[in-house]
């Protein structure tokens, strides 16, 4: 990938030593920091993962962001506005973490817009009612937390540290979403129906957020060995289901899976198989909102070009004026 540094020049001869040092650091559960030597594959994998994560935060602003102007109370408006703003902040930290690996934010944005880098498939589904805001908080942020908490111990320092802050904020968002749903379930019959409808639509896509099943996840083994990733997709999915079932009972909604039941022997819930063909279609770009989401990001980026150019031009003029002043 042209956005990443290759190994430092002249390091070739020393590479076996550096490689051993890197592996020993990983084995001791210590962090790799930006200035440490790292194998090119490790760097590339991290840039890809962190960029996808950053893109997901930024694209993920859209489905809920649509409801800020329509939120039905000022309190909910403020909560949602703040949440979507947090997502922009998460995107910023994550792009910064990617930049410590030699990537460039503008270049990553181009890759997103051109469809060369992915973001979480979940954001390609539409938000059809205000209940979706609550269900996204509960399911999508809940699933994101299951995925991300182990990343707080990721072997790459800047990513791990970004994840600590992000996870704290995500768990806030999850509770806010759940609290909105609790309030709606205590409200009118129509509100309860809105909640159940949103649960029905978001449940399976949320299970897909953990990625394909372990036997079909080609990159997982290397990422686990490098301790970029700590748990398998299926383990995390199970964790999410086990965490969510009692919350659904308490809320009074039905999760749309007839196979869902407690398995005493395993100590976990059994559940049905998500439609993996659907996941593959959405990942390939044929989900309900893929084109719309990317197009919005492209429009904002292109329409903002003159603003970014103006800021650059002003900074250059300021610097030139300062230099002239210093000479004179």
């Amino acid at each position: 990938m042209d956005t990443t540094h290759s190994s430092p020049p002249g390091a070739d001869g020393a590479e076996p030593v550096l490689q051993r040092h890197f592996e020993a650091t990983i084995a001791r559960d210590q962090r790799i920091e930006p200035r440490d030597w790292m194998p090119e594959g490790y760097r590339r994998t991290l840039v890809r993962q962190i960029a996808q994560h950053a893109h997901s935060e930024i694209i993920g602003m859209q489905p809920e962001g649509e409801w800020i102007t329509r939120a039905p109370s000022l309190r909910r408006k403020a909560i949602l506005f703040a949440k979507v703003q947090d997502e922009a902040g998460h995107g910023l930290y994550l792009y910064s973490a990617a930049e410590t690996l030699g990537a460039d934010r503008a270049d990553l944005t181009e890759r997103l817009i051109e469809g060369r880098q992915k973001y979480s498939s979940i954001f390609n589904y539409p938000t059809l009612s205000f209940a979706d805001v609550g269900v996204i908080g509960w399911f999508v942020d809940g699933a994101a937390i299951c995925n991300q908490v182990p990343l707080c111990r990721s072997s790459y320092g800047p990513y791990a540290r970004a994840m600590v802050r992000i996870c704290k904020e995500e768990s806030f968002h999850q509770r806010q979403g759940y609290e909105l749903l609790m309030t709606m379930m205590r409200g009118t019959k129509e509100q309860r129906e809105m909640v159940q409808d949103a649960v029905d639509r978001w449940w399976w896509p949320s299970l897909m957020m953990f990625g394909p099943p372990d036997d079909a996840s080609p990159n997982s083994a290397q990422s686990m060995a490098w301790k970029i990733k700590r748990h398998s997709n299926d383990e995390l999915r199970q964790r999410f289901v086990d965490m969510t079932v009692p919350q659904a009972e308490k809320l009074g909604v039905t999760l749309p899976d007839p196979e869902l039941r407690w398995n005493e022997e395993r100590g976990h819930h059994d559940f049905g198989t998500p439609d993996w063909d659907e996941l593959m279609r959405v990942i390939k770009g044929d989900g309900p909102c893929n084109a719309q989401r990317t197009e919005r990001r492209r429009t904002a980026h292109e329409e903002g070009a003159w603003v970014r150019e103006a800021a650059t031009a002003h900074a250059a003029k300021q610097a030139a004026r300062a230099q002239k002043g210093a000479v004179a």
């Binding site: 506005f81 979507v84 922009a88 919005r296 903002g304 070009a305």
Partner: peptide, 11 residues
């Protein structure tokens, strides 16, 4: 929201 020229401006 989601239309700002840069992420810093979004925030």
């Amino acid at each position: 929201t989601t239309r700002a020229p840069e992420l810093e401006e979004e925030v």
